[in-house]
Structures are given as structure tokens and as C-alpha cells.
């Protein structure tokens, strides 16, 4: 009880008047800075989307067009440049993401996660048959690891640790983030997790 109250007061949350005053995904956070791991987190989330869906890149571009994002998100080269802000990539550009780019990526990831929710849910569920679940996890981790091997700098110890057998905690974390990022509320949650209060 005390703990949660402390948390609430520490972060100085605002009381939410009504749904019409609720946070909007396009509303910028005041006195907040972009977290250091934001490009890495967003790139890995897109990588999970690519793992869950074949030809996900085309779907991402279509979705970006549908939700009215700028041309940067429907152009293969521009999109790749944005993703290369992840320092763990093979081809890393020394650039940082702007707030607008983060907002667009959050919106894109959130709507893609919404489409893929049944698949994500299946992987996270513990109520289904164990053998079936293990089989699904095995397919998922094998595909994700091959994508990581292909795109990330495998000489980095962090990437090396991700590729070791039996280390699927991080992959599960990514799936949980995706599952909790669906819809408008989910997009707000994801966006809030990419910033720090300064």
C-alpha cells in the first residue's frame, strides 16, 4: 500500500479527469528526455514483429501508409537508416532518434502488435499444451536468433549472450512489451517507457 503510494507521489502522476482529457500518443511529455536504450528497444521490437510475420517489412510499410505516417516509414532505405540508430547493429549510424520518429515508430509498432496479438498471446500463454508451446517457442527463438545473427554485430558480448542456448528471457520480455503495447492505451504505455523524467 505504502509502496504504491510512494511510487505515485514520486512520479507525480496527474489524475486522469475523463477520457477526453486522457493522454494522447501524439502528446509530448514535458520535462522528459529520451532514454538511452530507446533505439535498441524499438529496433528489437520491430525484429520480433519480423519474426512473427513473414514479409513483415512490406506490412509495416503498408501499415505506415494506412495510419498516415511520413514517407520515411514507407521508404525501405529511410526506414533502414532509422533502424540503424540501434548501436548493436552491424551498420550503426551515430545518430539519435527524434521525438517525432519515436512517436511514429510507437504508433507503427502498436498497430502491428494489435494485428499480431493472437500469435503473441499464444506464445505467452501457459495454459496451453506444454509440448505445443515448446514447439512454438523453438520456432520463434530459432527465427529470431537467425535474424539477430544476420543484422546485429555478433562480436558484441550482449548479442553473443542473446544467441546462447536457453537464453530466452529477453525474447519473452520483448513479447510481453508487444502484448502490452496494443491499442491506444498500449501505445501510451510504450511511449512512456521510452523516456525518463529529467
Amino acid at each position: 500500500m505504502k509502496k504504491s503510494n510512494l511510487i505515485a507521489s514520486q512520479n507525480d502522476y496527474l489524475k486522469n479527469g475523463s477520457k477526453y482529457q486522457d493522454t494522447n500518443v501524439n502528446e509530448p511529455f514535458v520535462n522528459c528526455v529520451i532514454a538511452k536504450d530507446t533505439p535498441r528497444k524499438l529496433d528489437f521490437l520491430i525484429l520480433v514483429i519480423e519474426t512473427l510475420q513473414l514479409n513483415a517489412t512490406d506490412s509495416l510499410f503498408l501499415k505506415a501508409k494506412d495510419i498516415g505516417l511520413s514517407d520515411d516509414f514507407s521508404n525501405r532505405a529511410q526506414f533502414w537508416k532509422i533502424r540503424c540508430t540501434n548501436p548493436l547493429r552491424n551498420t550503426y549510424t551515430f545518430k539519435s532518434l527524434s521525438s517525432d520518429q519515436i512517436e511514429s515508430l510507437v504508433e507503427l509498432i502498436s498497430s502491428m502488435a494489435d494485428n499480431l496479438y493472437p500469435l503473441i498471446r499464444q506464445l505467452l500463454s501457459s495454459k496451453e499444451s506444454k509440448t505445443l508451446n515448446q514447439e512454438r517457442w523453438s520456432i520463434f527463438t530459432t527465427r529470431l536468433k537467425s535474424l539477430i545473427r544476420e543484422r546485429m554485430n555478433i562480436q558484441r558480448s550482449y548479442i553473443d549472450s542473446l544467441l546462447t542456448e536457453g537464453n530466452s528471457e529477453f525474447f519473452r520480455e520483448l513479447l510481453v512489451i508487444l502484448s502490452l503495447s496494443c491499442g491506444e492505451g498500449g501505445a501510451n504505455r510504450l511511449k512512456a517507457s521510452l523516456y525518463y523524467q529529467s
Binding site: A8, Q10, N11, Y13, L14, K15, N16, G17, S18, K19, Y20, D22, T23, F29, C32, A35, G183, E184, G185, G186, N188, R189, K191, A192, S193, L194, Y195, Y196, Q197
Partner: peptide
Amino acid sequence: LDRIRFDPRVNIRWDINQDKPFSK
């Protein structure tokens, strides 16, 4: 719970906190 918050057919003042970034 997200759906109920954002559904236009529901106009209720919920006693909940906004999703804001945590401090480092």
C-alpha cells in the same frame, strides 16, 4: 481496461493515473 478507457460510448471520470515516464 484500456478499451473501457478509450471507448467513446463511455464517459466516466476514472480515478487512475496517466501513463507518464518514470524517473531514471
